[in-house]
């Protein structure tokens, strides 16, 4: 590697690298957030207690079946192939010319959603049954129990897994270059295609990817610690005690 080339590539192309990194971060952040919402919704629905009989039971069975199929399908196929199928498929089938960025966010979100659904479901069933019963015993229904008791604990517990998904998304958005989304990998390919310095160009991309994932990991870890709050409590009406 010639340091001279590296410097020149950076000096000449930094706006493209920065824009590429920006698009990568943007798609990953929005995709992770939307995906987490999808995961929460799917997770909540999949843990609704099955009614013993009646039309509600049939509807819930059908909905659960569809949701399982969604999860299995998106976890069982590569995102790069999903991108091609969804982008070109929607163009062909519906003559829909999807905006590339929208398509990218859509693909990342539903992909993340499939993984997060299972993580959320695991998080919900890991909350001890006693808390569900205590909530039921004071008159809370499933939604109230979820909102006020279960999900706050689940969200805290799955935060590391969510951060992990975020980091995976930062890396995996690179496959979206197949539908020409101008994220970091795509931009780097363009830069390298112009100067034929593949190694140096991708070395710059490599460093940028690492800076993004490393920073995100640190920020999330600090956030987790903040959420956990202080280890001690203060006694009320007892301020004399130091």
């Amino acid at each position: 590697m010639k340091l001279g080339w590296l410097k020149e590539i950076i000096v000449n192309n930094w706006p493209m690298f920065i824009r590429g990194a920006g698009v990568t971060l943007y798609i990953s952040i929005i995709g992770t957030i939307l995906g987490s919402f999808i995961g929460l919704l799917v997770g909540i629905v999949r843990t609704i207690p099955m009614p013993e009989r009646g039309i509600k039971r049939i509807i819930l069975k059908i909905v659960n079946g569809i949701l399982s199929a969604y999860i299995e399908f998106f976890r069982g196929t590569p995102m790069i192939v999903q991108a091609m199928v969804i982008y070109y498929g929607s163009a062909q089938a519906f003559h829909l010319d999807m905006n590339r960025a929208v398509a990218a966010i859509f693909i990342v979100s539903i992909n993340t959603g499939a993984y997060m659904s299972e993580i959320v479901r695991g998080g919900i069933v890991s909350i001890d049954k006693g808390q569900f019963e205590a909530a039921a015993a004071i008159g809370m229904n499933h939604i109230k129990t979820m909102l006020h008791v279960v999900l706050p604990q689940v969200i805290r517990n799955i935060l590391p897994a969510t951060g992990n998904e975020f980091v995976i998304n930062i890396k995996d958005t690179s496959v979206l270059n197949v539908i020409s989304v101008s994220e970091l990998y795509f931009q780097t390919k363009t830069v390298a295609g112009n100067n034929f310095r593949y190694f140096e160009s991708f070395f710059v991309a490599c460093v940028l990817y690492f800076i993004m994932t490393f920073t995100v990991t640190r920020i999330l870890r600090a956030f987790e610690r903040k959420l956990d709050g202080p280890d001690n409590y203060t006694m009320m009406g007892n301020q004399m005690q130091v």
Binding site: D128, E133, A134, A135, A136, A137, I138, G139, V149
Partner: peptide, 22 residues
Amino acid sequence: IYAYRTKLGMVFQQFNLFNNHN
């Protein structure tokens, strides 16, 4: 049944406090 349950308080062997609430 939800309104009915508010009329009965229940105390469990395992306490079952809500861990996310003080």
